[in-house]
Design a protein around this nucleic acid. Sequence first.
DNA 1: GTTGAGCGTT
Length: 299
Amino acid sequence: MSELYIRVAEDENEEPMEIPSEDDGTVLLSSVAAQFPGACGLRYRNPESQCMRGVRLVEGVLHAPENEWGNLVYVVNYPKDNKRKMEEIDAASAVKVKRGFQKTSDLIVLGLPWKTSEQDLKDYFSTFGEVIMVQVKRDAKTGNSKGFGFVRFADYETQTKVITQRHMIDGRWCDCKLPNSKVCPDEPMRSRKIFVGRCTEDMTPDELRQYFMQYGEVTDVFIPKPFRAFAFVTFADDQVAQALCGEDLIIKGVSVHISNAEPKHNNIHQLFRNFPGGIASLATQMFGRSQYQSPSSHV
DNA sequence: GTTGAGCGTT
């Protein structure tokens, strides 16, 4: 029987780690890999030749040279270039973990003064958190600002904070919103926006905002004009919106009913979302044959 | 040389 542990290091000059051997004196590759993920073998420097030698590996079992592990330090082998790849994989997954729910998007900045530059934007928004992108949209010919731009933050918390307030930039009030291109018509809107039914005409947007603030950050209030007895309230947090759905709340002495906001009808697909058989069926009825392929049918 | 609700030349 050999020793209980052999000394293994990632590199000849690194501090060795003791890896347990089996009763028969062998060492399992899995034991090595448990401490050095991705390891595929061991090597060591032969004291006599001063050359590196490979350790015999048979079906996952490492065999001691000359039947004796001795006091040598064994160095971990990795698959060709695998070490770097593993680091890349780790880095990539770390990025994904960091993103996860926290992925930020470009925000559109509306209402910019004509004079505001990208540097001005960066200076202003940097007071909220790390800015990773700013843009001021300009006329291609004249170079004049179109009065809006975009900003992107490193952290989602910063984004949420920025969305939920107005911004005084170079003397004008500006709004930061998720761009329409980023707003999925289905889930996100449905989850963050509520439908407030049975509204009365004397309810103002500001009053609704004041009222719903008690539940969470309100990012938008919309009351159709002319009066239609309902309103939409959007929260920063979808969980707040979801928690309110189904409730009957009393605002200014009247009972309003809260439910999910149906997706806004931005395009033809949303407009005919609830049409029996879908839009293709509608096309069939209109034209007598199905010549329309909905984009959603080849996602 | 203008303007003030909106939505990004690639």
